[in-house]
């Protein structure tokens, strides 16, 4: 019965192979804003399902370790896959899937669901912003395949700055909440697991670096496009300020 709740939750709080359903569902939504909303809500739904599963301490050790292995493989698999993604929407979903797998790790290590909710929100917020901006880009430039146009910062500086901050946050850069979520997650697992999880930081940094190459550098080769408005930038900035404040507040115990 406990396993069934976990399997159900894995479709919403993505864990390979059920993460395929999560990614397919988010990608099929028509508007960027709706995709962003789904990225916020679905992991919380997954955590709600996980709430019904038996407490971690009640699971046999073998099953707990098996669960941690699946979470590790899932996180690494999606991080590696993000390296070759050039479409902003796909890239965001892959990195989000990788990041949310760390929530499973923390859960198997016995972190309470209330703390996991905040950690999941930490990953979902920047991903939500990135997906909303992807939608805007698709609407204005005809697609979000970053390598196609190159040097987007020259024509859409506000949009690009917002995207860069979202990508940095999503790849666990301090002082955004995913960084603290990861720190807290890794701090709660046995040391033996660390060598398998730390490469994630490298892979996310690599994936972000490849994305920035196309986003920031070189000449823009696309059609003329209009940038997002100042109000949008202020709204996005507020989201990130809230995210940082949330992480500081939520991780107070650890800090």
């Amino acid at each position: 019965m406990g396993l069934m709740w976990c399997v159900l939750a894995a479709a919403f709080l993505p864990l390979f192979p059920l993460s395929w359903l999560f990614n397919r569902a988010v990608a099929s939504l028509p508007v960027g804003a709706v995709q962003g909303g789904a990225a916020l809500l679905l992991p919380q739904l997954g955590l709600a399902l996980l709430h019904w599963a038996p407490a971690v301490q009640a699971w046999p050790r073998m099953e707990r370790e098996g669960g941690m292995v699946v979470a590790t493989v899932s996180a690494l698999l999606y991080a590696v896959r993000a390296l070759s993604a050039r479409d902003l929407g796909i890239w965001t979903r892959l990195v989000l899937s990788s990041g949310l797998a760390t929530i499973w790790l923390a859960w198997w290590a016995g972190t309470p669901i209330s703390a996991l909710r905040v950690m999941a929100l930490g990953w979902s917020l920047p991903a939500g912003v990135a997906l909303v901006l992807t939608g805007v880009l698709v609407r204005r430039a005809g697609g979000a395949y970053i390598g196609l146009q190159g040097g987007l910062v020259a024509v859409m500086p506000r949009m690009t700055t917002s995207l860069v901050i979202a990508v940095l946050a999503l790849t666990a850069t301090p002082v955004f909440s995913p960084f603290f979520a990861l720190w807290k997650g890794l701090g709660s697992v046995p040391v033996a697991w660390l060598p398998f999880w730390l490469p994630l930081l490298f892979l996310w940094g690599w994936a972000a670096g490849r994305l920035f190459q196309d986003l920031l550098f070189g000449d823009y080769r696309g059609e003329p496009v209009t940038d997002i408005g100042r109000a949008g930038v202020v709204l996005i900035a507020l989201v990130f300020v809230a995210s940082v404040a949330l992480s500081f507040a939520a991780n107070g115990g650890l800090l």
Partner: peptide, 21 residues
Amino acid sequence: HRRAAAGRYAFWTQITYRFGD
């Protein structure tokens, strides 16, 4: 941002630093 080479070498630095992190 206009110089693609600057981006390429900045990326090398970033990836080495991340490895060292």
